[in-house]
Write a protein that binds this DNA or RNA. Sequence first.
DNA 1: TCAAAAGTGTTGTGAATACACCCATGG
DNA 2: CCATGGGTGTATTCACAACACTTTTGA
Lengths: 241, 241
Amino acid sequence: MIGTTGRDPEVCSVTVDLVIFTVRDGELNILLIERGNEPFRGASALPGGYVRPGETLDQTALRELREETSLDGRELHLEQVRAYSDPDRDPRGRVITVAYLALGPDLPRPVAGTDARQAAWTPVAEVLEGRMILAFDHRTILRDALERARTQLEHTTVAARFCPEPFTVGELRRIYEVVWGFKLDPSNFRRKMTRAEAFLEPTGEQRFPEVGRPAALYRRGSARFLIPPLLRTGASRDEVV
Amino acid sequence: MIGTTGRDPEVCSVTVDLVIFTVRDGELNILLIERGNEPFRGASALPGGYVRPGETLDQTALRELREETSLDGRELHLEQVRAYSDPDRDPRGRVITVAYLALGPDLPRPVAGTDARQAAWTPVAEVLEGRMILAFDHRTILRDALERARTQLEHTTVAARFCPEPFTVGELRRIYEVVWGFKLDPSNFRRKMTRAEAFLEPTGEQRFPEVGRPAALYRRGSARFLIPPLLRTGASRDEVV
DNA sequence: TCAAAAGTGTTGTGAATACACCCATGG
DNA sequence: CCATGGGTGTATTCACAACACTTTTGA
């Protein structure tokens, strides 16, 4: 890398943008802020900010998470998605951004950022169905992050990060249904999940819902990968939720 | 993102590093250059260079590819892997790098870079088995890119990008075996590949090898994804190649 | 005729679906 | 007793691994 025929090496700003998903009221929601400055003043945007000296991108993401949501990043799943580098993506100048995907349970405190900007949970469907304007290339970033999240649910155990512990198999299934957008067979889903090694750790307790039989409670196990994977291929597309 | 409490926004250099894989003599090879300057003078490193003004990262990757390998990037598969941002990853200062994965057929011309640096194909096994020193965090980048390549072979049709057209099913199978590191059953592999829609496009021609029955020739089809995927889970780990 | 690689056919095993059915609770 | 969701059992279907077997060539 370095040591190139260094013609015109560019020095530019780098930011981190966060796609923070949660499941609220049976819908996938994303945390958006309202922009207070130009450009895109008044439009919605992903939370995020500049990388500071000495920070890794992961650290920037964690810090922004804390600043925007007052949440400890250790309670969330956080992973890098990719970098976006269109030279015209920010009208003010050259800014490369690295998108991060964050998954977490529905937050008790309704997300008051430490700075003045308004932060609000918004149904992803509302954003993607075209009505809402997102600043910069944030619509593209959202689409990519959503696709990443859907794929991650197939191969990893991150879905459980959406659930406050302890949780039931039914709650976990609803996460899959909401993120993927179609219904799953409860009995087959149950088998897959309980068979997967170290995914669900029974607490021995039960939860008594308003209606219906009580459900066994689980905690997240140590496994990071879901083996075998739960693919969203072919069948099972029973119905859009 | 922008519009933050802009304390200490950092301005830093951004580079692109290329992990260029090919299959040569039944081994996975990577293109490495020998560093002519400090730091890591004399050590091997990934080819790459600075992002220039007005360039997207993809364009930087394509340009570096051309400069280092004299190859047209359109002949290769090229995709972004991820960004690396440890503040100490470059002893000279803050440099964030974005890694790209490039896959291509064994190159006829033996890779003469336009600049003076020596570029050479090196077996990946030799690098990862600990002997060779790689500059910066390039060993980590290589490991990540290799894992990405292995996963991509499961779900996409990129394996065919390793093969000069036209190619046989056997040649394609050898790609999988070399990248994954274990043997596959020829007959089952054949079925999977020929069943997958628009992966292999028969030319109607045959190739007559030095020994054995002639093999039907194929060109790459239009499909980008391999459906259903060819998973490297569980069985089939017959033998390390 | 033999070796070697291409290519076809078949069979057994296990996973996924679809669905019937029972369980435990609140009302 | 009913509605509701939790949870178990099971038959059918389907994909895959394993492997026997045939084909087509050069030597």
